[in-house]
């Protein structure tokens, strides 16, 4: 058993344990932290299959940005834990069925490995100087540049639709009109009133 197998076994164990932690811990903040741990361990697993760039991106983007945001939201929202757990027994049979399907799929995976599908092929080892980042860049920005641009349009569409459906201009909304503020003259704001001084009797 080489060092790679030891690293894989250890990280896989931590990954499974932290994944269980995500769904079983009572405190939502702990659950989010367990999710961070599972992201980190899976990024180590990705390193083992020589996907260095994706491993780094997983840590940078998901752990560094998405999960931190997630933690903020969780801490601010103060979710009621008991309310979330109410439906557990009601949905338990459904969960058992889903678990059965997943177990069945895992078993078929072992069968598929023997059946000669392309997914069962050995990992292709690259030369030490092969650049993972470059390959992904070429695939994303040269071979699939059309798909990449299309995805950008889908994001633009999502922005437009989300703003259209949520932005409401309420009547009586107080907003600054900078141009009007700049253009304003003294006469618009100040009225000089001559008040006759009162005479003492």
């Amino acid at each position: 058993m080489g060092i790679v197998d030891v690293i894989f076994g250890f990280n896989a164990l931590v990954l499974v344990a932290s994944a269980i932690g995500v769904i079983s811990s009572r405190n939502t903040v702990y659950a989010a932290l367990f999710l961070v741990l599972s992201f980190v361990t899976s990024s180590i697993l990705w390193l083992l299959i020589e996907a260095e760039f994706l491993a780094i991106v997983l840590v940078l983007v998901y752990v560094g940005a998405v999960m931190v945001l997630f933690l903020f939201v969780v801490m601010m929202l103060d979710v009621e834990v008991a309310a979330v757990r109410e439906g557990f027994t009601r949905y338990a049979p459904f969960g058992v069925i889903m678990a059965g399907i997943v177990v069945f799929e895992l078993l078929t995976l072992f069968w598929a490995r023997a059946s000669g599908l392309p997914i069962a092929a050995e990992l292709v080892r690259r030369a030490p100087d092969a650049s993972n980042t470059r390959e992904i860049g070429v695939a994303l920005y040269t071979n699939h540049v059309f798909e990449f641009e299309l995805a950008a349009f889908i994001l633009l569409l999502a922005i437009v639709a989300a703003i259209m459906l949520t932005l409401r201009s309420r009547p009586g909304l107080k907003a600054q009109d900078v141009a009007a503020q700049v253009k304003v003259r003294r006469e618009d704001r100040v009225r000089i009133v001559k008040v006759p001084a009162e005479r003492g009797e």
């Binding site: 699939h144 798909e147 299309l150 889908i154 569409l157 259209m164 459906l165």
Partner: peptide
């Protein structure tokens, strides 16, 4: 299949929003 799916998503997202245009 990839291009087909991306086109389908562009179409579908636009249609969902159009149905809800009178929100």
């Amino acid at each position: 299949f990839l291009v087909m799916y991306l086109g389908l998503e562009t179409l579908s997202l636009a249609l969902y929003a159009m149905v809800a245009v009178e929100r």
